[in-house]
Simulated scan of single mutants.
Amino acid sequence: MSQNNYSQVNRSNDPEQIDLLDLVLQLWRGKWMIATFVIVFIALAIGYLSVAKEKWTSSAIIAQPDAAQIATYSNALNILYGSAAPSMLDIQTRAIGRFNSSFSALSQALENQEDPEKLTIAPTTTGQPLPLTVSYTSTSAEAAQKQLAQYIQQVDEQTAKELALDLKDNIKEQIKTLNDSLVNQEKVAQEQKDLRIKQIAEALKNAEAAKITSPQLQQTQDVTQETLFLLGSEGLKSMIDNEASRPLIFSSAYYQTKRNLFDIQNLNVNPDTIHVYRYVMKPDLPVRRDSPKKAVILVLAVLLGAMVGSGVLLGRNALRNYKPKA
């Protein structure tokens, strides 16, 4: 028994053993010191909250434009390319795709500024290209909502102008193509006229050689190139004069090309009538700020203050009771 009592006393006097009850008593006796640290850390946290910049994020959800929002652009493409024009769905998809690209470029430019701005665009649902969620972070809820709406409008107007500019380039190219087609058709018609006159002139030579002056055929609809000279020299001379004075004869394709050219020349697409997105949800007014989080920071301040105060208290007591080993 005496040996066991001795070992228990010896263990209790061992400075390397941790006595939880003693720690609790030390913390209780130094509670005012710990409370002082907690108050100091709370004051620091309040000071940080008073000077820290607030961050509020406004978000909007957008999708491809309605048919009416892109109607003028679609109609222009239909006039330009006819049956080869892209479908309305293709045009809508391309429009929102260009909006996405331009918005991403703007986001990157804002991020690379000396004073960066946070503007993001991403699919609302993972794995689905549409709709898109766009967000902007600012120092106040109102500023975030207003600036996000302005950036969306800015990208919309920029993209509409780019589409209108592309359309003008396509119109110029199509006008050039149609004019070239008309010139070629006129050349063909002129060559056909010259060939017809040459054929009649050749028949006239044959008629003069055969000394045929008056028509030898009763039905002129049966005349072929080989029997043309039978119309007689007088009739053939009259035909040559008539053919020379007649205007060129064009096919229906020529006049269809003319109509297409006039329609395209009259095209005038105003960028203000083009919109490349549709709101599913307009920029919202955030009700909770992203940072700083008051409750979280105050709780952390209390915990850190208690931990630092406890550490200082226990460290001071340990140094006070420290006795070097013999």
Rank of each mutant, 00 (worst) to 15 (best):
Q3K: 06
N4K: 05
S7D: 10
V9Q: 13
S12K: 13
S12C: 08
E16L: 13
L21Q: 10
L23M: 12
L25D: 11
W32Q: 05
I34D: 12
L49T: 09
I61A: 00
I62N: 06
A68V: 11
T72I: 01
A76W: 01
Y81R: 10
Y81S: 09
A84Y: 06
D90T: 14
I91M: 09
T93Y: 07
T93L: 03
G97M: 03
F103I: 06
S104H: 02
Q108T: 13
E117Q: 15
K118G: 02
P131H: 03
L132P: 11
L132W: 07
T133Y: 01
T137G: 11
A141F: 07
E142T: 14
A143D: 13
K146D: 09
Q147K: 14
L148P: 08
Q154A: 12
V155S: 04
D156N: 15
Q158D: 07
Q158E: 11
T159E: 08
A160W: 02
A160Y: 03
A160K: 00
K168W: 07
K168A: 14
D169I: 08
N170M: 13
I171E: 15
K176D: 09
V183G: 03
Q185E: 09
Q185F: 02
A189C: 02
D194Y: 04
R196E: 08
K198N: 13
I200E: 03
A210T: 03
G232W: 07
S233Y: 11
S233G: 13
D241G: 13
N242R: 05
E243D: 10
R246G: 04
N260S: 15
N266Q: 15
N266C: 05
L267Y: 07
L267F: 08
N268K: 11
D272I: 03
H275S: 15
K282D: 07
L285N: 12
P286W: 04
P292E: 07
K293T: 05
L298N: 05
A301G: 03
V302T: 01
S310N: 04
V312S: 04
G315T: 13
R316G: 08
A318R: 12
